[in-house]
Computed example of a mutant assay.
Amino acid sequence: MKIQQLTLGFILLILVACGKKEKSAEAGKPEPDQSIPVKVVSVVSEVVSVPVQVSGIVGASNEARPAFKTGGVIARILVEEGAYVRKGQLLATLNLTEINAQVQQAAEAVIKSKRDLNRAKNLYADSVATLEQVQDATTGLNLAEQSFQIAQYNQSYSEIRSPISGKVIKKLMNQGEVVGPGTPVFYILGDGQADWVVKSGLVDRDWARLKLGNRAEVQLDAYPNQTFAAKVTQLADIGNAQSGTFDAEFTFTRSMPRLAVGLIASLNIFPNEGGAHPIVPIDALVESNGNTAAVFVLQPDNTVKRVEVSIGQIFENKAIISSGLSTDSKVVTSGAPYLEDGSKVKVIN
């Protein structure tokens, strides 16, 4: 019995000694590295002009839809579609039969009113007519003369002369048709270099960045692989109620090939934006939401700090930071989605 107890105690001593030896060995081993491998980049400050990219349609800034002031039957159409016309050129005339008769009628009314006035004056001198009758006759003559002037004026505008120099794009009426006052008969586009423009709609954010004279580059589907220089010449001060955008016009600054209204255009407009801003790769942004995001900034003790930033613009694979980040920082790019505020990191190349 004593031998068994001695044996059991000896075994226990051996086990305790082995346990202490294993603990000593474990205590001597280095702890495993828990650092997360990451890549970092230095925040740089640059002056960057991010272009405004929009689509547009070629149009004309100088166009006209001339019409007759009075109605009537079209007697002559003197130009056809596709013709080039100069300012002041006669384009069409009305049949003057009715209009001339109105002028003659008004002229006869003037003659009659003059006779009535002379008669009233003579009778008034003989104390037969009253002063009121003379005054009424005078008023009648004045009205007749004004009616005559109106008839002559309408007679002079019974023809259409081109208000601009350009090309007749569309002939809307034909000879012999009855036309009403103010009804367009032609559609004329100006043919000068400055008459061609690109019209587009801008969202409010882009509208606020642009100013008159800003440089633009235009590409037309009709002329692939070609870029045409232009500039901002109009920016609307009132939003378009239908589209919710602000209308803008861009004028070409160099001679252009043959153009037509309705050609599709793509534009890059370059605003004049002064001042340098911090720039980081898009890979550094985490938890982005609209104009805000977060980045992890490397600390001296190889930990990271989560920093909220505001995004000014995004272009290509970079983001312009408008606030929240200084240029003497380093931000995490590769590995950023796996980090938390205070995470231990190991910078790798």
Rank of each mutant, 00 (worst) to 15 (best):
residue 1 M to W: 09
residue 5 Q to C: 07
residue 9 G to K: 12
residue 16 V to L: 15
residue 17 A to K: 11
residue 22 E to H: 15
residue 23 K to I: 09
residue 26 E to D: 15
residue 29 K to T: 14
residue 31 E to Y: 15
residue 31 E to K: 15
residue 33 D to L: 06
residue 34 Q to F: 15
residue 35 S to N: 09
residue 46 E to R: 11
residue 53 Q to G: 10
residue 57 I to V: 09
residue 57 I to P: 02
residue 57 I to Y: 13
residue 57 I to C: 03
residue 67 A to R: 01
residue 74 I to P: 11
residue 75 A to Y: 15
residue 82 G to A: 03
residue 90 L to E: 03
residue 96 L to W: 00
residue 98 E to V: 13
residue 99 I to P: 01
residue 102 Q to H: 09
residue 102 Q to I: 06
residue 110 V to P: 10
residue 112 K to W: 14
residue 113 S to K: 09
residue 117 L to C: 04
residue 119 R to A: 13
residue 120 A to C: 03
residue 123 L to R: 09
residue 123 L to P: 02
residue 126 D to V: 04
residue 127 S to F: 15
residue 129 A to N: 04
residue 138 T to V: 10
residue 140 G to N: 09
residue 142 N to F: 10
residue 150 I to P: 06
residue 152 Q to E: 06
residue 155 Q to H: 08
residue 155 Q to A: 09
residue 159 E to H: 10
residue 165 S to I: 04
residue 165 S to K: 01
residue 170 K to P: 08
residue 173 M to H: 13
residue 180 G to I: 00
residue 182 G to V: 02
residue 185 V to Y: 00
residue 186 F to I: 01
residue 187 Y to R: 05
residue 190 G to C: 04
residue 194 A to F: 06
residue 196 W to L: 14
residue 203 V to R: 00
residue 203 V to T: 00
residue 208 A to Q: 12
residue 211 K to T: 13
residue 220 L to N: 13
residue 225 N to W: 11
residue 226 Q to N: 11
residue 226 Q to A: 13
residue 227 T to M: 15
residue 229 A to N: 15
residue 232 V to C: 08
residue 233 T to R: 05
residue 242 Q to V: 03
residue 246 F to A: 02
residue 246 F to K: 03
residue 247 D to S: 05
residue 248 A to L: 08
residue 249 E to A: 09
residue 251 T to F: 07
residue 255 S to I: 14
residue 256 M to W: 11
residue 258 R to H: 07
residue 258 R to S: 14
residue 268 N to V: 09
residue 271 P to E: 08
residue 273 E to T: 15
residue 280 V to H: 00
residue 283 D to W: 12
residue 283 D to E: 12
residue 287 E to N: 11
residue 293 A to D: 01
residue 296 F to H: 01
residue 300 P to I: 12
residue 301 D to E: 11
residue 304 V to C: 02
residue 307 V to T: 15
residue 309 V to Y: 05
residue 312 G to Q: 13
residue 316 E to L: 04
residue 320 I to F: 03
residue 326 S to R: 10
residue 327 T to F: 01
residue 338 Y to R: 05
